[in-house]
Design a protein around this nucleic acid. Structure first.
Lengths: 252, 252
DNA sequence: GGACATCGAACTGCATGCAATTCGGGCGCT
DNA sequence: AGCGCCCGAATTGCATGCAGTTCGATGTCC
């Protein structure tokens, strides 16, 4: 039997929403790297809308944490710190445990088939680029969330999964997606079997290992802002004698 | 010792942010009831800004789930369904268990004092209106989240707590806040003692009982839209013979 | 009395324009 | 060369204006 009566949870077809979706996808596929500039004019021109709309879209994405917005400054793709990335994964683990807890033993045959089809797609994409693999893996989790029919859960899982995606492009070493795919299959099996405890454990382990593979160590440097890197050392500077830093390594 | 090095996590001082904060507070204090209309013009005039800014603020609040935005229609304060309210509480329980798990045994004396001071304030407000009590109780949880120094966790806990607040004004019977205050004190004590398992259990029970006190039963009706109420019955109507409803009970 | 059509007011969707701020390259100085 | 300054171009912050849609009161007919 289905987990709950179905209902549509799709996003509106506003121009704003269209731009949001496009940017979101570009970001998680790493077409837009963390730190990439997103000027309102350029976005507006690219999508055939006015700056007002582009601006609104950036506001939405900033609310989701995918974009960083500072007053009077060009918006940039978010560059989460290592700690923020770890926090995001911790939250994600709890949320997705909740997802599979609600879903265990309550999926229809059609839903299980849909999940399997998705993992098949992941399998086929193994030869392609990392970006596509990562996107598909993320979408598997979002697909699961959708099946709870809880719009709020869908929103939070999606957001936090996107954020995790973002961090992968910052801190990840070239990783193998194969074991992740197998873990997806195991989760589907446990869901179908209805073993609630088992599937929660599987999901926990799955996300934890993804996080550990990705967030190898607090080795930022790459893509980090100089000021952030030096922040821990700032306390040692007496405030009346501020060190003027030479302008090197300033990412444009 | 402190849980983590402190950092500021306050919101920007944009005009948009100011309006967001004001509306958020008005909503959770029930000055604005669910379903209340929020025309862009009126907001702009009230806050001394243009419609563009008011519109942007509404977009942000919609992203947080506090406001409902439908194309070409006046924005309204969100009216969550009973099921959505239950979902929000379920998510909240997981998130706040994570909060206290991270915090157990890691609070400074100053932080514990701050928490106690807050609960004292809750105590003093017991004679006042329900709205203020609810707001203070909610802010206790947000204060806890802040102490994790995880901006992401703060954001999610805040959002979901506000949403829960919103549902209280919809489905809650006149409730007693006293036991909730005692539970807050118990949580502080367990945090100070560093009993991780105990505090997670306490938080779980606390939120669950708040939810159960509030969400007494699937008894919508009040403040619900007629169409939503009748949605479950819609399946029984053949689509070529749509029943035209008389225009009653249309909330303005 | 109650359902329906109609029309003006109200409101939203969006683009554009102007002021204020930031960015970045070139110039002069050491 | 290296560093700081300055100024024009680029960019954001915000208000306003116009077109299209919705809302609701009124009048009309049954």
């Amino acid at each position: 039997m289905p987990a709950r009566a179905s209902s549509k949870t799709s996003e509106a077809s506003d121009k704003v929403s269209v731009i949001c979706r496009a940017l979101r996808r570009a970001i998680i596929e790493q077409a837009l790297e963390p730190g990439a500039k997103l000027p309102e004019d350029a976005l507006g021109e690219r999508f055939g809308v006015s700056r007002t709309i582009a601006r609104h879209a950036l506001g939405q994405l900033a609310a989701e944490g995918l974009v960083e917005l500072r007053r009077n400054r060009i918006a940039v793709v978010a560059t989460p710190s290592w700690q923020e990335a770890r926090d995001a994964f911790d939250i994600r683990i709890e949320l997705e445990r909740l997802v599979v807890r609600q879903l265990a033993g309550k999926l229809t045959r059609a839903q299980i088939a849909e999940l399997n089809a998705h993992v098949d797609a992941e399998d086929r994409a193994r030869g392609g680029t990392d970006a596509v693999s990562i996107r598909l893996a993320t979408e598997f989790h979002i697909l699961l969330a959708h099946m709870t029919n809880s719009p709020i859960l869908v929103r939070y899982v999606s957001e936090v999964a996107y954020r995790c995606c973002l961090t992968l492009s910052l801190y990840s070493r070239p990783h193998s997606t194969e074991c992740a795919i197998n873990e997806h299959r195991a989760i589907i099996a446990a869901l179908a079997k209805g073993d609630e405890a088992k599937v929660m454990e599987l999901m926990h382990h799955h996300l934890d290992s993804v996080a550990n593979r990705a967030l190898v160590a607090p080795t930022p440097q790459r893509g980090r802002d100089l000021l952030d890197i030096l922040a821990p050392y700032a306390d040692e500077v007496t405030s009346d004698r501020v060190v003027k830093l030479p302008k090197i390594a300033r990412r444009g």
